[in-house]
Design a binder for these strands. Structure first.
Lengths: 221, 221
DNA sequence: AAATATTTTTAGATTAATCTAAATATATTT
DNA sequence: AAATATATTTAGATTAATCTAAAAATATTT
């Protein structure tokens, strides 16, 4: 299945919108997401449907097909691997890499992707804390959610902080909790929502609800 | 100056053809190089001329302009840097990287190029032995030529071998001459064309004309 | 220099991706 | 359920990049 650049981008948007909402994706929603006009979307979905990467009936919205999902996940995989490369190897900040990865994700070479993946040591998460699907489209960690959403015995990996409060960052530094730290929830105190956790360094500690709400984690198998 | 992908590829071809021959580039030559029809070339050169990146008069062939040359060199720089990346970091062979670099060269981000250049330790030559222009479009080594073309006192850097004869490769291995070896010509014996050279390891040795003809070097400042 | 061959350009079509404006289908309100 | 509003599609244009076929310019040969 050979797709053009524009088709790949539509497919990616359809995949993301499908994941967010539950049912089919509306023409208007897609138009907004693609920053284009509904008329253009109507045209494009007809083409994509023709190629079998989406299911589409006039006026009924769009659903991604099996092959479509495979392609979308391959593009997402490339995007997130390149983001890891840009941050880990080239020294970019995580908030500078999106536009470049948006270009790099369209490079066609399965061998390149596998070599890059190996070079980066098979990362499972990108610098934004989003999970990277493997070459078969399987995610090995969940998406980024607040630590405070985890339940007792859940395992997670720190994937981000939703605040740039210096005090918080210094505190996290002090207790040695940072991006990539793996942890397990030992206990949650019902009264104040504070959590007793154990980190990958076998250290036990308490995290207040206030802090847990600022920390993003991805669930770990 | 914003160019489309196709325009960038034409410009690159025009640059290379200009360097090879001396005068302007003919429509037919460009068509052959781009694997397209002369009619399409006529159209494209009109557009490129419009944008000021080439000088063009009907029936008179094409010459690259100042700004055109700058753009072409920037694309070539990116192509060659990515080739170094693919070979040095991802473990590709030098003969597998062209098609991938052909895609990567169109990624737009000056910052990315500079970071990549630094990550690769500012290489001056790609894996094929071709020189990499710096960000101002300046080459720091010459193009790959046979070692046998050098004159006494010339300095060069080994950039390739135009043969895959096992015996030759083993011999080069033995005398420790390989890709990247820097050398200076001490003397050339007129009778048989053999060369006395000194390598960057301060070793002196003789190279027969037969061997020198198989070795590619880039002249060094 | 006239005839012939070659090169180059123009004219008219085609495809992908977009747009605006108009038409049609679906959803919501009274 | 009729009227109104919103969402979606169609019709017709536009731009970039290509093509084939025909016309025009330049080069070569006799």
């Amino acid at each position: 299945m050979k797709l053009t650049l524009a088709e790949e981008n539509y497919l990616k948007a359809i995949y993301h919108l499908s994941e967010a909402g539950d049912g089919g994706v509306s023409t208007n929603a897609l138009a907004e997401s693609m920053e284009t006009k509904p008329a253009s979307v109507s045209d494009m979905v007809r083409r994509l449907s023709q190629k079998g990467v989406i299911d589409y009936q006039k006026y009924k919205g769009v659903n991604i097909s099996k092959t479509g999902k495979t392609i979308a996940l391959s593009v997402i995989r490339k995007h997130r691997l390149w983001e890891v490369f840009l941050v880990e190897k080239l020294g970019f900040n995580w908030d500078e890499v999106h536009d470049i990865a948006e270009q790099l994700e369209h490079i066609q070479s399965p061998l390149l992707v596998e070599r890059l993946d190996k070079f980066l040591d098979h990362p499972v998460m990108d610098p934004h804390g989003d999970p990277i699907p493997d070459k078969n489209g399987v995610f090995h960690v969940g998406p980024a959610i607040p630590l405070s959403d985890l339940k007792s015995k859940d395992k997670g990996i720190i994937s981000g902080v939703t605040s740039d409060d210096q005090k918080l960052l210094q505190y996290l530094d002090k207790i040695k909790v940072g991006l990539g730290t793996k942890l397990i929830i030992l206990e949650i105190e019902e009264f104040d929502g504070s959590m007793k956790i154990e980190t990958d360094k076998k250290e036990e500690m308490f995290i207040s609800k206030k802090t847990a709400e600022q920390l993003l984690v991805s669930k770990w198998p």
